[in-house]
Simulated scan of single mutants.
Amino acid sequence: MQAIGLCRFSYPALGGFQVGHDTTEERIAYLYDDARLEERFRLLEAVALPCLKAQSDPDFSMIFVIGDQFPDHHARRLESLLADLPQAVIHREPPRQHREVMKEVLNAARINPKEPCLQFRYDDDDAVSVDFIARLRRTVEDSAGLLAGQRSVAFDWPKGYIAEFGQGGIRAAEVFRPLNVAALAMYVKGGSPVTIMNFAHEKLPRFMPCVSLPDSAMFVRSHNGSNDSRQGLARHVDVAPLDAEGEALFRTRFAIDNDQVRRVFSA
């Protein structure tokens, strides 16, 4: 069964952001600001990409959506970071309505729309466990009875970590967060054009069955200076430096290495 991931990398969509801008030009200026993009690239390199490259089941595709005005030197940097992730495809789009663009991109990526597929969103500053794709496939197989007759079913792993990354390394705290973007996926039956982007992630259970698996930690949610989701009433989380056991867990579970984090953020 095809598995498709979708990452919006500083794409200047119309809508889709909690940080408001009056014009598309203002949004582009905000998203393409060099200081902001530097932080996003560091998070992508040290946090978001290692776990994708280390997936125990490499049978998935990963689409990175960028704007058609994304600066060339930044595009080359993105291409370089994705060079050893063969599952990655960069897709350029002009500024358009957020959900409509993402739905089109996901449906265009389906190899055989008549066959069911798995879909997941992916933020460029988060991480999932290195067995996320494998766990997703196994859980879907185990849920065959539930899937029968359903247009779509959501699968959620709500245990993970909130973390901050910088020159001093990783500071983190374990959390229970149902329906995060990270470690949340959706089964779509064959022939249906519905996508995971049809719905706000926290509202998925309003529209379909949702299987929650609160066992092992499956995600790392980054808190940083340009978190869109931290605007407004963001929940404060007290994070602390990882001890040796925590560093080992982040390496083995999420392929995030504390020494690499220090190097990347000190560059």
Rank of each mutant, 00 (worst) to 15 (best):
K159Q: 11
L82S: 09
R253N: 07
R110V: 14
A200C: 06
Y30Q: 07
A173H: 09
D22I: 04
D33V: 00
I66H: 00
S56H: 08
S129D: 10
M218K: 07
G168P: 00
F250K: 01
G145Q: 07
L249C: 08
Y30H: 15
A48Y: 00
P205I: 03
I4Y: 02
A46P: 00
P95A: 14
A185E: 03
D156N: 15
R253H: 08
E247L: 03
F9T: 00
S212V: 11
P94C: 08
Q260I: 11
R262S: 04
R262E: 07
F9R: 00
A148L: 12
E247T: 10
F60T: 05
Q18M: 12
E45M: 04
G149I: 01
S129A: 15
R92P: 12
A244M: 08
F207N: 09
R96H: 12
Q87R: 05
D259P: 01
P58H: 09
E25K: 11
D34P: 00
G20N: 11
R151C: 08
V47L: 04
V237A: 11
A163V: 05
G160K: 02
V47G: 02
V175G: 06
M1I: 11
A248V: 03
F60R: 07
R263C: 10
A172G: 06
L242R: 02
E39K: 06
D257T: 06
A200I: 11
Q150T: 08
M218Q: 14
A267M: 11
S222E: 02
E245T: 12
Q69A: 14
E202T: 13
S56E: 13
P205T: 06
D34E: 15
T139Q: 14
Q260Y: 10
F155W: 01
D33L: 01
V130N: 03
H73Y: 13
Q260A: 12
E174N: 07
A234S: 15
P71W: 03
L242I: 07
P193G: 09
A240T: 14
G168V: 05
E247F: 02
V211A: 07
K53S: 11
A88F: 04
S212D: 04
R27K: 15
V19T: 13
G232V: 08
A144S: 15
A240R: 14
A163C: 10
S152K: 10
V237G: 07
E79N: 10
D72F: 10
D123I: 01
L37M: 14
E164H: 11
G5K: 03
R230F: 14
A109S: 15
S143Y: 04
L14N: 07
G5I: 05
D125A: 08
F165E: 00
I170H: 00
A182L: 04
V188P: 00
Q231F: 14
S80G: 14
L179G: 05
Q119R: 06
C51W: 08
R263A: 15
Q97W: 10
F60D: 07
V19A: 12
D259Q: 14
K103W: 02
R27Y: 02
F132D: 01
A35Q: 12
A13M: 05
D68Q: 09
M62P: 03
D57N: 15
F265A: 02
Q119P: 04
F70Q: 01
Y32D: 04
D238P: 00
R137M: 08
L44P: 00
R36I: 06
L6I: 15
A13H: 04
F199T: 05
G145Y: 05
